[in-house]
Amino acid sequence: MSVLVYIEHAEGSVKKTSLEAVSFAKALSEGEVIAVALGSIDENELANVGKAGADKILHVDDEKLNAGVIQAHAEAVAQAYKQVGANTLVLAKSSLGDAVAARLAVKLDAALVSNVVELPDTSNGYKVKRSIYTGKAFAETTVSKAHKILAVKKNAVDLKTDGAAAAVEKVNFDIAGDNFATQITSTDKATGEVLLPEADIVVSGGRGMKGPENWNLIEDLAKELGAGTGCSKPVSDIGWRPHHEHVGQTGVKVAPSLYVAVGISGAIQHLAGVNSSKCIVVINKDAEAPFFKAADYGIVGDAFEVLPKLTEAVKALK
Protein backbone atom coordinates (compact mmCIF):
# COMPACT_ATOMS: atom_id res chain seq x y z
CA MET A 1 0.00 0.00 0.00
CA SER A 2 1.00 3.63 -0.45
CA VAL A 3 2.55 5.87 2.17
CA LEU A 4 1.14 9.40 2.36
CA VAL A 5 3.30 12.32 3.51
CA TYR A 6 1.79 15.58 4.78
CA ILE A 7 4.15 18.37 3.76
CA GLU A 8 4.31 21.90 5.14
CA HIS A 9 5.47 24.98 3.30
CA ALA A 10 6.21 28.61 4.16
CA GLU A 11 7.29 31.66 2.18
CA GLY A 12 6.81 29.72 -1.07
CA SER A 13 9.14 26.83 -0.15
CA VAL A 14 8.54 23.34 1.18
CA LYS A 15 10.07 23.06 4.64
CA LYS A 16 13.26 21.02 4.99
CA THR A 17 11.70 18.99 7.79
CA SER A 18 8.91 17.93 5.42
CA LEU A 19 11.47 16.91 2.79
CA GLU A 20 13.16 14.77 5.46
CA ALA A 21 9.76 13.17 6.13
CA VAL A 22 9.44 12.36 2.42
CA SER A 23 12.89 10.71 2.39
CA PHE A 24 11.92 8.75 5.51
CA ALA A 25 8.74 7.56 3.76
CA LYS A 26 10.71 6.53 0.67
CA ALA A 27 13.01 4.36 2.77
CA LEU A 28 10.01 2.94 4.62
CA SER A 29 7.70 2.20 1.69
CA GLU A 30 7.72 -0.77 -0.62
CA GLY A 31 5.09 0.95 -2.76
CA GLU A 32 4.28 4.48 -3.87
CA VAL A 33 5.15 7.55 -1.81
CA ILE A 34 2.52 10.24 -2.30
CA ALA A 35 2.76 13.68 -0.71
CA VAL A 36 -0.14 16.04 -0.07
CA ALA A 37 0.31 19.83 -0.02
CA LEU A 38 -2.40 22.26 1.09
CA GLY A 39 -2.85 25.87 0.04
CA SER A 40 -1.15 28.12 -2.48
CA ILE A 41 2.33 27.07 -3.60
CA ASP A 42 4.09 26.97 -6.97
CA GLU A 43 3.83 23.65 -8.82
CA ASN A 44 7.54 23.66 -9.71
CA GLU A 45 8.40 23.84 -6.02
CA LEU A 46 6.09 20.92 -5.38
CA ALA A 47 7.54 18.90 -8.27
CA ASN A 48 10.98 19.23 -6.65
CA VAL A 49 9.67 17.25 -3.68
CA GLY A 50 10.26 14.27 -5.96
CA LYS A 51 14.01 14.73 -5.43
CA ALA A 52 13.46 13.79 -1.79
CA GLY A 53 11.66 10.61 -2.81
CA ALA A 54 8.01 11.39 -3.60
CA ASP A 55 6.44 9.68 -6.62
CA LYS A 56 3.44 12.00 -6.83
CA ILE A 57 2.16 15.19 -5.19
CA LEU A 58 -1.52 15.83 -4.48
CA HIS A 59 -2.06 19.60 -4.39
CA VAL A 60 -5.20 20.99 -2.76
CA ASP A 61 -4.91 24.53 -4.14
CA ASP A 62 -7.43 26.23 -1.87
CA GLU A 63 -6.58 29.68 -0.49
CA LYS A 64 -8.67 28.98 2.61
CA LEU A 65 -6.03 26.43 3.63
CA ASN A 66 -3.23 29.02 3.59
CA ALA A 67 -3.91 30.11 7.17
CA GLY A 68 -3.06 26.66 8.55
CA VAL A 69 -6.35 26.09 10.39
CA ILE A 70 -5.72 22.78 12.13
CA GLN A 71 -9.20 21.27 11.74
CA ALA A 72 -9.29 22.02 7.99
CA HIS A 73 -5.82 20.60 7.39
CA ALA A 74 -6.68 17.43 9.31
CA GLU A 75 -9.85 16.92 7.27
CA ALA A 76 -8.06 17.48 3.94
CA VAL A 77 -5.25 15.07 4.82
CA ALA A 78 -7.74 12.47 6.06
CA GLN A 79 -9.55 12.59 2.71
CA ALA A 80 -6.25 12.32 0.82
CA TYR A 81 -5.23 9.35 2.97
CA LYS A 82 -8.44 7.49 2.19
CA GLN A 83 -8.32 8.41 -1.51
CA VAL A 84 -4.86 6.88 -2.06
CA GLY A 85 -5.59 3.84 0.12
CA ALA A 86 -2.60 4.42 2.38
CA ASN A 87 -1.89 2.51 5.57
CA THR A 88 0.81 4.87 6.91
CA LEU A 89 1.00 8.65 7.19
CA VAL A 90 4.39 10.31 7.67
CA LEU A 91 4.89 13.95 8.63
CA ALA A 92 7.43 16.18 10.31
CA LYS A 93 7.13 16.79 14.03
CA SER A 94 6.28 20.49 14.30
CA SER A 95 3.80 22.76 16.06
CA LEU A 96 1.32 22.40 13.19
CA GLY A 97 2.19 18.76 12.51
CA ASP A 98 1.61 17.74 16.14
CA ALA A 99 -1.88 19.25 16.20
CA VAL A 100 -2.87 17.84 12.81
CA ALA A 101 -1.49 14.38 13.64
CA ALA A 102 -3.48 14.17 16.88
CA ARG A 103 -6.75 14.85 15.06
CA LEU A 104 -5.86 12.44 12.26
CA ALA A 105 -5.22 9.66 14.78
CA VAL A 106 -8.89 9.93 15.76
CA LYS A 107 -10.24 10.43 12.23
CA LEU A 108 -8.32 7.46 10.83
CA ASP A 109 -8.40 5.24 13.94
CA ALA A 110 -4.61 5.18 13.67
CA ALA A 111 -1.73 4.71 16.11
CA LEU A 112 0.36 7.87 16.48
CA VAL A 113 4.07 7.76 17.29
CA SER A 114 5.87 11.11 17.63
CA ASN A 115 9.56 12.09 17.75
CA VAL A 116 10.49 9.13 15.53
CA VAL A 117 14.26 8.84 15.01
CA GLU A 118 14.65 5.61 13.00
CA LEU A 119 12.83 3.46 10.47
CA PRO A 120 10.46 0.96 12.13
CA ASP A 121 11.78 -2.49 12.99
CA THR A 122 9.42 -4.97 11.34
CA SER A 123 11.43 -8.12 12.02
CA ASN A 124 9.12 -9.07 14.89
CA GLY A 125 5.96 -6.99 14.78
CA TYR A 126 6.17 -3.22 14.26
CA LYS A 127 8.45 -1.34 16.65
CA VAL A 128 9.34 2.33 16.43
CA LYS A 129 12.24 4.08 18.17
CA ARG A 130 11.47 7.58 19.39
CA SER A 131 13.17 10.30 21.39
CA ILE A 132 11.82 11.05 24.88
CA TYR A 133 12.64 13.30 27.85
CA THR A 134 13.78 16.18 25.61
CA GLY A 135 16.26 13.92 23.85
CA LYS A 136 17.85 12.41 26.98
CA ALA A 137 16.58 8.89 26.26
CA PHE A 138 14.89 6.68 23.68
CA ALA A 139 11.78 4.55 23.85
CA GLU A 140 10.76 1.61 21.69
CA THR A 141 7.05 1.70 20.91
CA THR A 142 5.18 -1.34 19.64
CA VAL A 143 2.36 -0.53 17.21
CA SER A 144 -0.48 -3.00 16.68
CA LYS A 145 -3.02 -0.94 14.72
CA ALA A 146 -3.37 -1.37 10.96
CA HIS A 147 -3.12 2.38 10.32
CA LYS A 148 -0.08 4.27 11.57
CA ILE A 149 0.99 7.92 11.84
CA LEU A 150 4.72 8.60 12.25
CA ALA A 151 5.91 12.11 13.17
CA VAL A 152 9.62 12.30 12.32
CA LYS A 153 12.00 14.35 14.47
CA LYS A 154 14.00 17.05 12.72
CA ASN A 155 17.44 15.94 11.47
CA ALA A 156 16.79 12.36 12.56
CA VAL A 157 17.03 11.02 8.99
CA ASP A 158 19.20 11.82 5.99
CA LEU A 159 17.59 14.00 3.33
CA LYS A 160 17.52 12.34 -0.08
CA THR A 161 18.22 14.70 -3.01
CA ASP A 162 18.86 12.41 -5.98
CA GLY A 163 15.28 11.63 -7.01
CA ALA A 164 13.43 12.84 -10.10
CA ALA A 165 10.80 15.57 -10.30
CA ALA A 166 7.39 14.30 -9.22
CA ALA A 167 4.08 14.62 -11.03
CA VAL A 168 1.77 17.20 -9.43
CA GLU A 169 -1.94 16.43 -9.46
CA LYS A 170 -4.52 19.06 -8.55
CA VAL A 171 -7.27 17.62 -6.33
CA ASN A 172 -10.37 19.08 -4.72
CA PHE A 173 -11.90 17.88 -1.48
CA ASP A 174 -15.26 18.74 0.03
CA ILE A 175 -14.19 20.29 3.32
CA ALA A 176 -17.20 21.24 5.42
CA GLY A 177 -17.41 24.86 6.51
CA ASP A 178 -17.32 24.05 10.22
CA ASN A 179 -13.70 22.96 9.76
CA PHE A 180 -12.90 26.63 9.14
CA ALA A 181 -14.78 27.86 12.22
CA THR A 182 -11.49 28.79 13.91
CA GLN A 183 -10.09 32.08 12.66
CA ILE A 184 -6.44 33.07 13.02
CA THR A 185 -6.59 36.83 13.50
CA SER A 186 -2.86 37.49 13.79
CA THR A 187 0.46 35.70 13.91
CA ASP A 188 3.54 36.97 15.74
CA LYS A 189 6.74 35.60 14.26
CA ALA A 190 10.27 35.81 15.55
CA THR A 191 12.45 38.10 13.48
CA GLY A 192 15.84 37.40 12.00
CA GLU A 193 17.45 36.34 8.74
CA VAL A 194 17.33 32.67 9.76
CA LEU A 195 14.72 31.61 12.34
CA LEU A 196 15.83 29.18 15.05
CA PRO A 197 13.23 26.41 14.51
CA GLU A 198 14.16 26.19 10.81
CA ALA A 199 17.92 26.76 11.12
CA ASP A 200 20.28 24.00 10.02
CA ILE A 201 23.15 25.81 11.78
CA VAL A 202 22.83 27.78 15.03
CA VAL A 203 25.41 30.05 16.69
CA SER A 204 24.59 30.88 20.32
CA GLY A 205 26.23 33.15 22.84
CA GLY A 206 26.26 33.23 26.63
CA ARG A 207 27.37 35.56 29.38
CA GLY A 208 30.94 34.98 28.27
CA MET A 209 30.21 37.57 25.53
CA LYS A 210 30.26 40.16 28.39
CA GLY A 211 27.57 42.41 26.93
CA PRO A 212 25.12 43.03 24.06
CA GLU A 213 27.60 45.42 22.44
CA ASN A 214 29.76 42.41 21.54
CA TRP A 215 27.01 40.43 19.83
CA ASN A 216 28.21 41.51 16.41
CA LEU A 217 30.88 38.78 16.74
CA ILE A 218 28.13 36.14 17.03
CA GLU A 219 26.13 37.72 14.20
CA ASP A 220 29.14 37.99 11.89
CA LEU A 221 29.92 34.27 12.22
CA ALA A 222 26.25 33.36 11.85
CA LYS A 223 25.96 35.43 8.69
CA GLU A 224 28.94 33.71 7.08
CA LEU A 225 27.58 30.28 8.03
CA GLY A 226 23.99 31.09 7.01
CA ALA A 227 23.02 30.32 10.59
CA GLY A 228 20.38 31.36 13.07
CA THR A 229 21.44 33.11 16.28
CA GLY A 230 20.55 32.00 19.78
CA CYS A 231 21.50 32.67 23.37
CA SER A 232 21.46 31.15 26.84
CA LYS A 233 18.64 31.87 29.32
CA PRO A 234 20.66 34.27 31.52
CA VAL A 235 21.43 36.38 28.43
CA SER A 236 17.75 36.78 27.55
CA ASP A 237 16.77 37.28 31.22
CA ILE A 238 19.06 40.29 31.60
CA GLY A 239 17.87 41.76 28.32
CA TRP A 240 20.98 41.37 26.18
CA ARG A 241 18.99 39.43 23.57
CA PRO A 242 15.26 38.94 22.87
CA HIS A 243 13.50 36.01 24.57
CA HIS A 244 12.68 34.29 21.27
CA GLU A 245 16.43 33.60 20.91
CA HIS A 246 16.62 31.77 24.23
CA VAL A 247 17.69 28.19 23.54
CA GLY A 248 17.08 25.59 26.23
CA GLN A 249 14.57 23.45 28.09
CA THR A 250 12.29 26.42 28.80
CA GLY A 251 13.07 28.20 25.54
CA VAL A 252 13.44 27.07 21.94
CA LYS A 253 14.56 23.47 21.47
CA VAL A 254 16.74 23.11 18.38
CA ALA A 255 18.11 20.16 16.41
CA PRO A 256 20.45 21.66 13.81
CA SER A 257 23.19 19.89 11.92
CA LEU A 258 25.69 22.19 13.65
CA TYR A 259 25.36 24.01 16.99
CA VAL A 260 28.10 26.46 17.99
CA ALA A 261 28.06 27.53 21.65
CA VAL A 262 30.18 30.55 22.54
CA GLY A 263 30.80 31.56 26.15
CA ILE A 264 28.07 29.22 27.46
CA SER A 265 28.94 27.09 30.48
CA GLY A 266 26.56 24.25 29.60
CA ALA A 267 23.88 24.11 32.31
CA ILE A 268 21.64 21.05 32.10
CA GLN A 269 18.67 23.24 31.09
CA HIS A 270 20.56 24.54 28.08
CA LEU A 271 21.82 21.09 27.10
CA ALA A 272 18.25 19.78 27.14
CA GLY A 273 17.41 22.22 24.35
CA VAL A 274 20.37 21.38 22.09
CA ASN A 275 21.26 17.72 22.69
CA SER A 276 19.53 16.62 19.48
CA SER A 277 22.07 18.58 17.43
CA LYS A 278 24.12 16.43 15.07
CA CYS A 279 27.37 18.23 15.88
CA ILE A 280 28.14 20.54 18.83
CA VAL A 281 31.12 22.90 18.86
CA VAL A 282 31.94 24.68 22.13
CA ILE A 283 34.13 27.78 22.44
CA ASN A 284 34.98 28.72 26.02
CA LYS A 285 38.08 29.99 27.83
CA ASP A 286 37.24 27.82 30.86
CA ALA A 287 38.63 24.36 30.11
CA GLU A 288 36.45 22.94 32.92
CA ALA A 289 33.17 24.22 31.46
CA PRO A 290 30.58 21.37 31.62
CA PHE A 291 29.58 21.98 27.99
CA PHE A 292 32.85 20.41 26.79
CA LYS A 293 31.60 17.00 28.01
CA ALA A 294 28.72 17.19 25.51
CA ALA A 295 30.76 18.69 22.67
CA ASP A 296 31.92 16.92 19.53
CA TYR A 297 34.61 19.59 19.13
CA GLY A 298 35.90 22.10 21.66
CA ILE A 299 38.06 25.20 21.48
CA VAL A 300 39.57 26.44 24.74
CA GLY A 301 40.21 30.09 24.14
CA ASP A 302 39.00 33.67 24.42
CA ALA A 303 35.88 34.15 22.27
CA PHE A 304 37.00 37.67 21.38
CA GLU A 305 40.09 36.20 19.75
CA VAL A 306 38.61 32.96 18.39
CA LEU A 307 35.42 34.29 16.77
CA PRO A 308 37.05 36.82 14.38
CA LYS A 309 39.58 34.20 13.25
CA LEU A 310 36.84 31.59 12.79
CA THR A 311 34.71 34.04 10.80
CA GLU A 312 37.65 34.89 8.54
CA ALA A 313 38.38 31.18 8.04
CA VAL A 314 34.78 30.58 6.94
CA LYS A 315 35.02 33.52 4.52
CA ALA A 316 38.20 32.07 3.05
CA LEU A 317 36.58 28.67 2.54
CA LYS A 318 33.65 30.29 0.75
Rank of each mutant, 00 (worst) to 15 (best):
E8F: 04
A10P: 15
S13E: 12
S13R: 14
S13Q: 10
K15M: 08
S18F: 08
S18P: 07
L19W: 04
A21E: 09
F24N: 06
G31S: 11
I34N: 06
A35V: 14
A35M: 08
I41L: 08
N44G: 13
N48D: 12
A52I: 13
K56S: 09
I57H: 01
A67C: 06
A67G: 02
V69C: 03
V77A: 02
T88A: 14
V90A: 04
S95L: 12
V100I: 10
V100S: 04
R103S: 03
L104P: 11
L104D: 13
V106A: 15
V106M: 11
A110H: 00
V113H: 14
E118L: 08
T122E: 09
N124T: 08
N124K: 08
G125R: 14
Y126G: 00
K127P: 02
T134G: 06
T141E: 15
T142L: 11
K145E: 10
A146S: 14
A146F: 01
K160V: 02
D162K: 03
D174E: 12
I175F: 04
A176E: 15
D178H: 11
S186M: 10
V194L: 10
L196T: 09
P197I: 05
G205F: 04
K210A: 02
N214Q: 10
N214V: 03
L217V: 05
I218C: 12
G226A: 13
G228Y: 00
C231P: 01
W240V: 00
W240H: 01
W240Q: 00
H244I: 04
E245K: 01
H246P: 00
Q249K: 03
V252E: 05
A255K: 10
P256D: 09
L258P: 02
L258H: 01
V262D: 08
V262T: 10
A267D: 00
A272N: 01
V274P: 03
N275A: 06
I280T: 14
V282M: 03
N284G: 00
K285H: 12
A287F: 09
A289Q: 10
P290Y: 02
K293M: 14
V306D: 14
P308A: 03
P308Y: 07
E312M: 04
K315R: 15
K318M: 06
